[in-house]
Amino acid sequence: MDEKSLVTQVLAGEAGAFRLLVERHQRLVMHMITRVVDRLEDREELCQDVFLRVYDKLGEFAFQSKLSTWIATIAYRQAINHLRKQKMKWSEIPEDDQWQQRWGMTDTPADLLEDAQQEEWVRQLIDQLPVQYRTVLTLYHLEHFDYREIGEATGMPEGTVKNYLFRARQLLKEKVILWQRSEKV
């Protein structure tokens, strides 16, 4: 069933259609929430809240973007609002170089995961990145959104999306190189 028929059926009050919509997008929403919200116990309820919001607002969806982009927008806002309400760490990306030196230094791969794969370690590093970097990385690499769609979902200008994606990858790459060099020694 295509997006348009699905939305039409949901708006006509077919519960089965909304269930299908949830099943199709639950992974996307869960990825978004997981990348932004650290507390495991909050995640499922937040995901449910996202779909309740989708249900309430679906009549306003005008097919100007993909349904997944629109749902990702709601998920991102819901997650950020949650962080704000809980007064959890949500701030602009620090500009100082010290932050970049501190980032990822709390756990060295050897301390943290002796036998684990590099990729697993990088995934843990991703979780320590600022929320904006994590979100952009997730939407681009995992959900295959383009820059415009990420901009729509997060409210960031396209240039900022490109810049955050570049910086996030660069920061991670530098850590990987440090690890690879330390492995060779």
């Binding site: 990825h31 990729e119 697993e120 991703i126 690499h141 990858r169 790459k173 690879q180």
Partner: peptide, 16 residues
Amino acid sequence: RAYQVVFRAAAQPPRV
């Protein structure tokens, strides 16, 4: 080579 590791890791879904 380092970027390849980063790209592969970023394409992995978080543990959910």
